[in-house]
C-alpha cells in the first residue's frame, strides 16, 4: 500500500470527468474540414490540438464550431509544459480555459513532458527525470490545471529517446503516483509505450501492467519512424507520420483485453493521409473496440 503524500492530502477529485464515447476517433485537420461537413463520416469523435485554436477568429473557429455541433470533441494540449521547471504560464492556462468553455469538449488532455523554458517555446515534448522533485512539481501543475479547468486532465505517457541518470523511479511508477496524488486520468498512448520500450529496452508488458490502467480515459495510436542509435540498436521516433505499426496494433488488442473498450484516437500530425484512408484506420480500431468487453464502470474518484 502506498503512503499518502503529505503534500497533496487535501486534493479532491476534479469536477468533470472525461466522457468521450468508447469509439475510434481521428484528428481534425484543416484540409478535411469541408469534406467532413459534406460527408458526415461515421467516426466516434475528433481531436484537435488546443494551441492551433488559440487564435482570435477565422476559418479554424468557423469549421470547428460546425463540426463540434455534430461530433464529440477531445482537446489535446501540446503547450502547457506541465513538466517545466518553472511555474505554469497562467495566461496560457486562461486561454485554454476560454477555449474549453467555448467548445465544451468531452475530454482535455496534456503531456507528461515539458516544452517551454523561460520565454522560449521549443515545440517539442521534452523528457523528464523521474525523481521526487519532478513528481512534486508535476503534481502541483496538474492540480493547478484541474482546479482552474474544473475537470479531470488526462495525462499522456511520453515517447522518449533518452533516460536520466538522476531518475529514482521508473516511468510507470512515476505516472502511477501522479494519478494517485492528483486524481488525473491517463491518456495511454500505446505507440509511445512501444516506442519507449524499444528505445530503453523495457519489457513493454511489464511497463503496461505497472501503469495505473484503472485511470485510462483515452487511448492514442500512431505510427513511428525507425532509426538507429550510436550502437546500431533500434531507435524509434514518434513522428505521427505513418500508419500504426503491426506491433502496436497487437499491443492495443492486449490493452483492450486488460481494460475493456476505451475511446481511441488515431493520431496523425505529419504526412496527413486522405480522410478516407484515415477513417479506414479508425475503422480497424473500431472493430477491435466492438470485440472488446464493455468498459469497466468509471470509478476514478
Amino acid at each position: 500500500m502506498m503512503i499518502a503524500s503529505p503534500i497533496h492530502v487535501t486534493n479532491s477529485a476534479p469536477a468533470r470527468l472525461p466522457e468521450l464515447p468508447c469509439q475510434a476517433g481521428i484528428g481534425l485537420k484543416s484540409q478535411h474540414y469541408q469534406q467532413i461537413l459534406e460527408t458526415d463520416p461515421a467516426v466516434g469523435f475528433f481531436e484537435v490540438h488546443a494551441e492551433n485554436y488559440l487564435v482570435a477568429g477565422g476559418p479554424f473557429h468557423h469549421y470547428l464550431g460546425l463540426i463540434r455541433e455534430r461530433y464529440p470533441l477531445s482537446i489535446h494540449g501540446v503547450g502547457l509544459s506541465i513538466g517545466g521547471q518553472q511555474a505554469l504560464d497562467r495566461e496560457h492556462l486562461e486561454r485554454l480555459a476560454t477555449l474549453l468553455e467555448r467548445y465544451q469538449p468531452q475530454a482535455f488532455s496534456e503531456h507528461l513532458a515539458w516544452s517551454s523554458h523561460g520565454e522560449v517555446f521549443l515545440n517539442d515534448l521534452l523528457p523528464l527525470a523521474y525523481d521526487a522533485a519532478t513528481l512534486t512539481r508535476v503534481c502541483e501543475h496538474v492540480d493547478q490545471v484541474q482546479s482552474r479547468l474544473q475537470r479531470q486532465l488526462l495525462l499522456e505517457n511520453p515517447a522518449t529517446y533518452v533516460e536520466f541518470a538522476s531518475s529514482s523511479m521508473d516511468e510507470a511508477t512515476f505516472i502511477g503516483e501522479v494519478v494517485r496524488r492528483t486524481g488525473c486520468g491517463l491518456l495511454l498512448d500505446v505507440n509511445n509505450a512501444y516506442v519507449s520500450s524499444v528505445n530503453h529496452h523495457w519489457d513493454v508488458q511489464a511497463y503496461l501492467r505497472a501503469l495505473p490502467l484503472h485511470a485510462v480515459g483515452e487511448i492514442h495510436l500512431a505510427g513511428f519512424a525507425e532509426d538507429r542509435d550510436a550502437a546500431g540498436e533500434r531507435l524509434l521516433i514518434d513522428n505521427h507520420g505513418a500508419p500504426v505499426d503491426a506491433a502496436v496494433w497487437q499491443l492495443y488488442a492486449e490493452v483492450l483485453q486488460l481494460i475493456g473498450a476505451t475511446p481511441t484516437l488515431l493520431e496523425r500530425d505529419n504526412a496527413i493521409p486522405p480522410l478516407q484512408v484515415w477513417l479506414e484506420e479508425a475503422q480497424h480500431a473500431q472493430t477491435l473496440l466492438e470485440g472488446a468487453r464493455a468498459t469497466r464502470p468509471q470509478a476514478l474518484a
Partner: peptide
C-alpha cells in the same frame, strides 16, 4: 545527466 540502456553515446539520441 543523460543515459542509455546500452551505454551508447547519448548524443546520438539527444
Amino acid at each position: 545527466d543523460l543515459k542509455t540502456w546500452n551505454g551508447s553515446d547519448p548524443a546520438a539520441r539527444f
